[in-house]
């Protein structure tokens, strides 16, 4: 377990301190496109300096190291219980080392024991597959962007949003409008159409594991993704809500079946400080490959 433990600490360190290449590329494009001499451009320059510094110093990109979400793809017979125990120990050590903030609070007493481990923290999702490979993806999702997430139950008269794709478009754009700069834009949306209240939000977060430059295999959803990005970037909300050209870096939409009575659209907002990383692990738990 020592090797697995070390691998997970390294995964946490890198997720916290280094922005994935696909996100960096999108941020650099947004910096080029922003009008020169504006506070929006200045904000994006600070973002770039921050990304460089965090990597160089091996310290958190953002002090809110967020909810710690592990997504594990594993073969049949994989020992999930041992993995979860090791992951919790790795989180404790990463917190001591300052890769993670002491960020987990008892919701009833308000106490923070400084370990980042407690009921529901960290969160682990296991998914069994018919392959010998173990792939571990980690997302650190800050509270600022999590707080601007939204779930809509369609139809919504106020927004003239019916139970169809144009209705989905309206509520997703409403979420962007409501968020303004509070989610640390330019951001990325993970969206789920359908599901129940819990699975819908959960699927919306899982969309954020997709790379920014991939395309949705479902033509209707692909068209909706492109449309939302283009439309949102005409609203002038801009980086940090300062006004400007780039409000969103990307949108990723998935669909889950629903019951006839429900039609949920759930939106998870990810800040520019998009912390996700992933590895595949060898038989002894050593890192074989980085996924982003």
């Amino acid at each position: 377990m020592k090797q697995l433990h070390d691998s997970l600490v390294e995964l946490i360190r890198r997720a916290s301190a280094e922005i994935p290449d696909d996100v960096q590329a999108a941020l650099l494009r947004s910096l080029e496109e922003e009008k020169k001499g504006t506070i929006a451009e200045s904000a994006l320059q600070i973002v770039q300096r921050n990304i460089e510094l965090a990597k160089q110093k091996s310290q958190p990109i953002c002090q809110d190291t967020g909810s710690i979400l592990f997504y594990v793809d594993c073969p049949v017979g994989f020992d999930e219980i041992s993995f979860a125990d090791t992951a919790r120990e790795a989180v404790k050590l990463a917190t001591k080392k300052g890769y993670l903030r002491q960020n987990s609070v008892d919701s009833i007493t308000g106490k923070n024991d400084g370990t980042n481990v407690g009921p529901g923290a960290p969160t682990l999702h296991f998914h069994q597959h018919r392959s010998p490979e173990v792939a571990v993806r980690l997302m650190l999702k800050g509270g600022g962007c999590e707080n601007v997430g939204a779930q809509y139950s369609l139809p919504i008269e106020r927004l003239k949003a019916d139970r169809d794709l144009p209705g989905c478009r309206k509520v997703i754009l409403d979420a962007v409008l409501q968020a303004q700069g509070k989610g640390c834009g330019p951001g990325v949306l993970g969206v789920c159409v359908g599901g129940d209240r819990a699975t819908s939000y959960e699927f919306s977060k899982q969309q954020l594991l997709r790379k920014l430059d991939d395309r949705n295999p479902v033509p209707e959803l692909d068209a909706l993704e492109q449309d939302i990005v283009n439309t949102a970037n005409k609203l002038g909300i801009g980086p940090m809500g300062f006004g400007g050209k780039t409000t969103l870096l990307g949108v990723k939409i998935g669909a889950a079946n629903r019951v006839p009575a429900s039609y949920f659209v759930s939106v998870s907002y990810m800040c520019w400080a998009f912390r996700r990383q992933g590895v595949t692990l060898g038989a002894d738990g050593q890192i074989e490959k980085w996924l982003y």
């Binding site: 904000a43 600070i46 300096r49 958190p60 600022g144 800040c271």
Partner: peptide, 13 residues
């Protein structure tokens, strides 16, 4: 005064 959200290193320095 609005600081750049997420810029924890630049501001920490």
């Amino acid at each position: 005064l609005h600081a750049v959200g997420g810029a924890a290193q630049v501001l920490g320095e």
